[in-house]
Write a protein that binds this DNA or RNA. Sequence first.
RNA 1: CGGGGCGUAGCGCAGGCCGGUAGCGCACUUGGUUUGGGACCAAGGGGUCGCAGGUUCGAAUCCUGUCGCCCCGACCA
Length: 494
Amino acid sequence: MTKDAEKKDNKAQQYGVTPQSVDFNDWYNEVVKKADLADNSPVAGAMVVRPYGSALWENIQRWLDDRFKASDHESLIFPTLIPMGFIMKEADHVEGFAPELFTVNKIGTEELAEPYVMRPTSETIIGHMWAGWLNSYRDLPFLHYQWGSVFRAELRTKAFLRTSEFYWHEGHTAHAAEDEALAEVRMILDLYHEFCRDVLALPVVRGEKTATERFAGAVSTFSIEGMMRDGKALQSGTSHYLGQNFSRAFDVKFQTREQKEDYAHTTSWAISSRIIGAIIMTHGDDFGLIMPPRIAPVQVVIIPVGRKDNFSEMVAEGEKLAAELRAGGVRVRVDKRDGVTNGFKYNDWELKGVPVRIELGPRDLESGVVVVKNRNSDEKETLPRAEAVSGLAARLDAIHDWLYARAANFMLEHTTEVDDYETFKQKLEEGHWVRAYHCGDAACEKQIKEDTKATTRNVPLDDAEFFNERGEGQCARCGQPGAYGKRVIFGRQY
RNA sequence: CGGGGCGUAGCGCAGGCCGGUAGCGCACUUGGUUUGGGACCAAGGGGUCGCAGGUUCGAAUCCUGUCGCCCCGACCA
């Protein structure tokens, strides 16, 4: 190898990320680290969310929080520790979470008579408190949620997707009647769908989970499922109807208008920091991230281009432009770093997925233009400076639409309707989702999982944006009549 | 927890078989030249080789144990 070739080789190692097609998993891990989203921590299975990732999460929180409040939900704060006994009160719940609980059984050197667990979710302690707050049907509904982190020990972890401590909101509501609770469950599911579609540019399928995949302790579980660029499914949000399971376990009862006693119908719902994994894996490309513009921590980066003698002048011009954009509500950053070349900056911001880059150099200044480049295009455009400002909102919208269409097409192209088990297995092997009729039998589902590593993702709702057609057919595996009146989505999952 | 791999500078690695107390690229610092797609030159700083024990005059290198990480499975938002 010549010296130059050696240098080039070293650069290839140093810069950029492994292409998705070479190794999707390596690509993901490298993007997370190199884009400064997160880093490993000394605590096994727990990540550190770095400033760029934290800024993204804050934007996610802000949008959702506004919408929760706009629909009369109230936030509150519960303890991170939950008495061990609480977890034990709901049978399915214990079974579901027991293996992954972190337990606190000492204070200082003193053993606790009753250990605490680090909350894996808060239904139990919230139920306990509600019992004390609820007297009459007039008190209902309770529309509560909290932002925080929860703990579930994971054997194999992966940044954002599966960490032993993760961040989320958990919504908890209690209602006097079943239909009200179910309406809440649907309202939240639709809100999550809207958030994914209109803010994150993530196409997702709203549907109901089969019994096997239900939340521990729920009567019914609804989810939004998205497809990542390796064809795997990611459950991106969930909304559960808990019936009266938890209210009976925690004595959440009230007096009805008819002067009878009844247990509340409760719901719970969540989107976690996992959604950041969905953003990365749905929109990323071989150059790195592509941030959906409406949530991007930095929507526009301005690169002042100049030599030593006029660099500071160009920075000042960049700041002026930034101020105009900020006045229009745009999140913008000026890359003032000196001593790194422009090419380095371009690649750096592309890796971080900033939707729009504006270059501003002496030549541009002289002729009153700027050079604009979208993250999703190879083309640079030269625009009058004023148009770069006035046209920016539309430009960001166009990038959003482009991302959504690209992801939706990918999902549709990688989903196949099948009616026989051989094709079923083959398509899954090819990284597709499979839409098939299923008998609804848990043992049959389990067998499919053993054969293919795939599980049911969900049964799309009648008004789901994708895959919602009703129909009748035989189970693709066992030939028994389909149980859901439509095809079920099967896929390998994160 | 079962199978496989790996722990040497911030990152990526070489050295190990044939013991003699550590090297390369990138990153970092300083100075200079550069700057419209991952700059160049020069001079520097930084590790004692995951940890513990053993063999030896001497261990990154050999032996034993242990911890941690990654990948494949089982578990999972």
